[in-house]
Amino acid sequence: MGKGIPGLEGAYHIFFTAALIFLAVMLVLCLVRAIIGPRVADRLVAVNMMGTMVMVIIAILALMLEEGYLADICLIYAMISFLAVIVVTKVYMGVYQQKKEEEKNGGA
């Protein structure tokens, strides 16, 4: 990026580095949200956001390092992250429905 224009390569490098630092800070904040909750829905959204931010970080690194294989890794990570969120949601819904049935049967 910016091969023909003098100084543009350095500007891109500074911009990408700043974006990576910002995303790293936001990733830590999402991790804190995933740990403290307070609800399971908050945790699921935080984990999903963390997966999205990791994908963006990998994409920025692919641009910075000019390595095409990192884009492939980013796509694979996107699929795995999506499936993980779906599985965790299904597990949570099963536990929630089981507790609801136990309360219904225990109270009646």
Rank of each mutant, 00 (worst) to 15 (best):
54 V>T: 14
76 I>M: 06
12 Y>N: 10
52 T>H: 07
58 I>D: 08
44 L>Y: 02
91 V>L: 09
31 L>D: 02
36 I>C: 07
99 K>D: 12
100 K>S: 14
88 V>H: 02
53 M>R: 10
34 A>I: 08
92 Y>W: 10
64 M>V: 05
15 F>P: 04
43 R>P: 04
9 E>R: 15
57 I>N: 03
25 V>K: 11
49 M>C: 08
90 K>I: 12
42 D>L: 04
37 G>A: 01
55 M>S: 11
100 K>I: 11
32 V>N: 09
60 I>N: 00
5 I>C: 06
18 A>P: 00
59 A>E: 04
37 G>H: 00
29 L>E: 14
32 V>M: 10
56 V>K: 03
82 F>V: 11
28 V>E: 12
69 Y>T: 01
38 P>W: 02
43 R>C: 09
90 K>E: 05
55 M>F: 10
61 L>D: 04
76 I>Q: 03
63 L>C: 07
93 M>T: 09
56 V>R: 01
87 V>Q: 05
82 F>G: 11
61 L>R: 02
43 R>T: 10
95 V>C: 08
23 L>H: 01
38 P>T: 06
10 G>P: 12
21 I>R: 02
97 Q>S: 14
32 V>H: 13
45 V>C: 02
94 G>Q: 10
76 I>D: 05
86 I>T: 11
38 P>Y: 03
44 L>W: 01
85 V>G: 11
30 C>V: 11
16 F>V: 06
99 K>Q: 14
7 G>M: 07
54 V>Q: 04
38 P>N: 00
34 A>W: 05
62 A>T: 02
74 C>S: 09
38 P>Q: 00
104 K>Q: 13
88 V>L: 14
17 T>A: 07
73 I>E: 01
36 I>W: 07
58 I>Y: 01
46 A>N: 05
28 V>I: 15
75 L>D: 07
100 K>A: 14
98 Q>R: 15
68 G>Q: 07
8 L>W: 05
97 Q>L: 13
86 I>Q: 08
24 A>R: 02
102 E>V: 12
73 I>A: 03
61 L>M: 01
107 G>D: 15
107 G>R: 15
36 I>D: 07
98 Q>S: 13
64 M>G: 03
8 L>N: 04
48 N>A: 08
102 E>R: 13
49 M>V: 09
7 G>W: 06
11 A>E: 12
67 E>H: 09
7 G>E: 04
62 A>N: 01
1 M>T: 07
60 I>P: 07
27 L>Q: 14
71 A>Y: 12
38 P>F: 00
15 F>Q: 04
39 R>I: 08
38 P>A: 01
3 K>Y: 07
92 Y>G: 03
108 A>W: 13
31 L>P: 06
7 G>V: 00
94 G>P: 00
94 G>L: 12
1 M>C: 03
48 N>C: 03
105 N>W: 13
5 I>H: 08
74 C>R: 04
22 F>S: 13
12 Y>L: 08
77 Y>F: 12
92 Y>H: 09
25 V>D: 11
5 I>Y: 06
6 P>N: 01
41 A>V: 13
16 F>H: 02
96 Y>I: 08
59 A>I: 05
